[in-house]
Amino acid sequence: MEVTDAAVVAQVLAGDRDAFRVLVDRHSRSIFRVVYRMTGNQQDTEELVQETFLRAYKSLERFELRANFSTWLYRIAVNRTLDFLTARKTHMQTKDTYQIVDNPDAEDSAQIQLPAQGPGPDRLVLSAEMKQKIAGALGLLTPAERVAFTMRHMEGRSIEEISQTLNLKASAAKNSVFRAVQKLRQQLEPYAGPGTSSRGARWSGSAMK
């Protein structure tokens, strides 16, 4: 029988610190994915995964045993990442902006490929160059915009989930998503030349003629 997360939490609270490892084994990879999408940096992500679990452990008494552990952990991870991005922004304002673009290490370029589930009919196969431009544009967003955009766009989370996770009003969550897209357009639309076989390129092309 697979032991539930809640049962493991109870075990840890009863004094079995090592039982916490089960939760690390179960959830660290998914937390890694969540955080990586928001930071775009492997090393920062690994540290944030640790910080997330440390914080979860320390506040384990506040976890409602009836609640879903992964949702709870996810919220900690997102908020921890938001704090981290905010702190980084204030400490290294100018350098930070281009950090992601400057960091295309070997592992990253190996990842420039189609998503595992295969491209949908509308998916475009992007060049490595375009991927870097996207990463650079994402780096220009404010931490809140980046987090909200990642949740809505990449994870398909609802506005309600975003506002609950970040403790925002729904209107503020929507606004963060919108401002993120607005900035991304400013950065990325100049690159969408006639070569891109998108409907948007055709529309803009015909408008100019």
Binding site: F32, Q42, W203
Partner: peptide
């Protein structure tokens, strides 16, 4: 359509798999 085409390009961003033994290292 412009918004749509731009946003669809952002879809395929991929996350690298953490190295083998990542859970162990984290723990």
């Amino acid at each position: 359509a412009r918004v749509q085409s731009m946003l669809r390009q952002i879809e395929p961003l991929e996350v690298p798999e953490p190295a083998a033994g990542f859970e162990e290292k984290t723990w």
